[in-house]
Amino acid sequence: MKQAQKEHTTKRYGMVIDLDKCTGCGSCMVACMSENNVPFKTDESNKLDSITWMQVYKLTNGKSYPNTEICYLPRPCQHCAGKHEGHSPCVSVCPATATDYSKETGIVSQIYTRCFGCRYCMGACPYHARYFNWWDPVWPEGMEKYLSPDVSPRMRGIVEKCSFCFHRYQLARNKVYLEGRKDLDEDEYQTACTQACPAGAIKFGDLYNPEHEVHRIAQPDMQHGGRPQNPHVFRLLERLGTNTKVYYMSERRWVRKAGDNYLPGEFENPGAVAGSH
């Protein structure tokens, strides 16, 4: 390269999902599949081998009729940073460097052509965000026409996962370069699920950037592994030290409690939680 590119545009892309707004409709899941060329089979009712980068979980408060409550929780790849930036559970274990953590965007990548299918990363991920291609992807005749050139279709025998629609970042950067600008605007790079969510429950942006919605809502404390300072915001399995970039928000206590494991009494008395402060 001719010119050294000294633009340190370090970002930490992340999400805030308002669980009180999420209706469980599944638009995020389908938008993701259709954006990212996710294949489908004739029978997808076995959820243990069904590829859904974005997966909506159904949580219940465990109470019986008529006090039952339900909450839906969309789960994309959490893009963990780990205890020290880049020490994601999956990235650190991949033997062939097929998955990587970008210090520039904070996004965990997965390179399909490098992966040889050992599935160690799947074992390491507590969120089940990683999916294996047990079958060759097959589209009914003629349906290949809708495949997007921005994302490579995957082959059998490798692992795939949510990329925060990284190709959209790349395409947005193209324009930024062309126009000689320095940086992306907040709305220039949005994931497909964020864009599709009819309830507006998903927000996406740069957690480092105080002007971005995600920062304003989650108020991440970057000095302490990005821990949210908004009391209604939580992260999944915060206590494992995965340091995820997907934040969840709910007014309901039981929902926030469901985000992590607690010994009896711990959730009620957060000061006692070991290792969380």
């Binding site: 409709c25 599944g26 638009s27 389908v30 938008a31 809708y146 599709a196 009819p198 309830a199 507006g200």
Partner: peptide, 11 residues
């Protein structure tokens, strides 16, 4: 916003 049926229109 868009619903899942609309999103699946290409299928």
């Amino acid at each position: 916003g868009i619903c899942i049926l609309g999103l699946s229109g290409l299928q």
